[in-house]
Design a protein around this nucleic acid. Sequence first.
DNA 1: TTCCAAAATATTGTTGACAATTATCGACAG
DNA 2: CTGTCGATAATTGTCAACAATATTTTGGAA
Lengths: 251, 251
Amino acid sequence: MNNHQWPVPEGEGVISAPPASSLRDENQPAGEVERLYLEIFDAVIDQRLRPGVKLTEAVLCDAFACSRGTVRAALAQLQHDKIVELQPNRGAFVAQPDIKETRDVFEARRMVEAAILDKLLSLPDLPDRLQQLWQMVRQERAAFERQDRVSWIRLSNAFHVQLVRLAENEVLTELMNSLCSRTSLIIALYDKPGCSACSFDEHEHILQQLSRGDRQAAQQAMRQHLQDCEERMHFADRNVPDPWTMFHRQL
Amino acid sequence: MNNHQWPVPEGEGVISAPPASSLRDENQPAGEVERLYLEIFDAVIDQRLRPGVKLTEAVLCDAFACSRGTVRAALAQLQHDKIVELQPNRGAFVAQPDIKETRDVFEARRMVEAAILDKLLSLPDLPDRLQQLWQMVRQERAAFERQDRVSWIRLSNAFHVQLVRLAENEVLTELMNSLCSRTSLIIALYDKPGCSACSFDEHEHILQQLSRGDRQAAQQAMRQHLQDCEERMHFADRNVPDPWTMFHRQL
DNA sequence: TTCCAAAATATTGTTGACAATTATCGACAG
DNA sequence: CTGTCGATAATTGTCAACAATATTTTGGAA
């Protein structure tokens, strides 16, 4: 399937020159598909959309007041992020990561997040930057105590993303975003509802070790935290989504 | 923009149940958009498509004999991978990573690839698995000596991807694929044409340290290799793409 | 009742057309 | 010669309709 020719400039090379620089206006609408993408992405992170749910194009069109073309573009991107699965001629479903993917995601997280702690400890003003994370852990605890599951899940993921964000590396930040969303799917599928998937105690412990500047202990705490989270998954009885609650925003 | 409701099952919950399991046929067409995606992805990796080139939808339709909807879906995915930039109402351009992105990509690669070496060294049959990489380095040298630039670039990227693939972690493999494609764009933009961006000598050196089982030395070699590659970039005079050669497959 | 086949329904894949926006070219004043 | 303005052309964003495929329902026989 590689037997074609890239188009050759017709005539005497009249194809337009590339743009001098990106002059994108950040305040602009930024595209309908991006909006849809983020909407569905957040719904999956928050576990309002559970794994296996069918995302019918017409329903999404109706819900977000846009055309099917927009929906299809957004779904294509979500598929590429492994958040939805696109089955030909059958439709889009919220992805259901299997055991292998679970292992891979957590292994990747252990590698990346431990490496990031290493970099964070080289920052001179790390204690200042950690302030917002202490704040975040307090919010986690509060959300947990008032049994606000959605806020708690969101904060639990946000903790890891914000920690990575301190490294001021957009590539790593986006990677962590992607890994957290996939982790959310995994937890939704395999975590016992009663169990706390990502405890704020452990987050607190990581922050303590970071504040002390103890590299070994901080990395060990992070690895253990992720390890514990992975081991809390039960693959025997997966949480099959309930057709009645599916598609129902449990705000 | 969050003030809508997820659709509620109408009537008495008649929305179809989720699929029991994925029964995707791997030999099937796998989608037109995936084909287009890979075609453009490879063209960027091989530097047949240079940064800044405008990807007109109609031209791509014509070139790959598909509809604009397909093209738009593929471009949306490529945008999300930071391989093309989609400017509203202006069109799609092959991305032009800036200095910040260059720093972030290489930093991420140093972290991830060093961490992966750590895991590889724990494999009992590592020497066996390294065989194919030795072979690959030989091919790199051969391609370089016969001045086959496209093959050489492709093999140079493939070395890193294959190395990661030994860890048998699909998440990390896909990540490395993405990072390599972005690196290709960076090299196309900022590397002096004469300089060798990714020398096979250094690849060989990494393999040597791995074979010896020297963790410290192997990681140091990898970090140094990526550091050297990054430092070879000159941001002063970027290689602005030539409108005449753009879009012309230099097979 | 249970099973199987076929029609009916619903959903996806694809195409084409039209509106909105942007880029290009030429005329013309400074 | 340079720069601005306006008309034309090209390109993108969006939508609606149709064909292809999958799912559900219906009907009938064992």
